[in-house]
Design a protein around this nucleic acid. Structure first.
Lengths: 120, 120
DNA sequence: TCCCTTGGTTACCATTAGGTACCTATACCA
DNA sequence: TGGTATAGGTACCTAATGGTAACCAAGGGA
């Protein structure tokens, strides 16, 4: 069965809901080099709240994109790590990140021009 | 200057805000083959409201990703069309769409399993 | 005369996202 | 005894998202 990307239950639409959530892609990117601990992620992502980091990690875990491992140290240590599925998603997100770095300045320029003209 | 993707003003983050808005990517995809009219888009995207389609088109236009042309026919005809920038964005979104079609079933499986086990 | 089409705009309203602040538990160090 | 760090959970509150419904214009057809 061929998917119709414009139907509500389409996978593309669901994926966009997934990665459009402001933090998920950043977390995936940070985990690329290797496992990271909770507070390490928190410190590296500017502006994320504890609540949102927890929420993001939980849902990435629920979706099978990362795994969580807790160690009985004191204080407790928790490591998050990409699954193969998460790594494969990362590999298609990379071109997106590159496009953003290369082209967002043009988007900004277009936006400013519109703002100046102010199409009533 | 090298961008820190984890800083708030980072282009990647801004792009995600852009394409995470539920409808923009679908519109861009539909415009790939060629110019389309307002109601043609509306009919092909299941579930979009007139308000959201207008809003989406306006902001894609403001960002320089599509152009709008109105013809003084009766009733008035309006055509939307990708700019070169929009086409280049589409080319990096394609792998994403393919990933979604190939892998969202795994994500769903992972999600169901979690739901069944119900951690805690 | 009223309704149809095109392509919108606007007001209103409910849901959600996401922030802050405070709570937990454990064990270290001074 | 109190303060540190670890990794969270939870209540509360506000701002933004996005839906519905009603309105606009212009002209054609019954």
């Amino acid at each position: 069965m061929r998917w119709n990307p414009y139907a509500a239950e389409c996978p593309t639409r669901q994926l966009l809901d997934r990665i459009g959530d402001k933090w998920a892609v950043l977390v995936l990117g940070l985990l690329e080099p290797g496992p990271q601990r909770f507070n390490a992620l928190r410190r590296r992502i500017e502006g994320i709240s504890q609540k949102m980091l927890t929420q993001t990690l939980r849902s990435l875990e629920a979706d099978g994109l990362i795994t969580r491992r807790a160690f009985a140290t004191v204080p407790v240590t928790v490591e998050y790590q990409l699954t193969p599925l998460g790594r494969s998603l990362n590999s298609v997100l990379d071109p997106l990140r590159e496009w953003a770095e290369a082209n967002m300045s043009r988007v900004h320029k277009a936006r400013e021009k519109r703002g100046a003209v102010d199409r009533k």
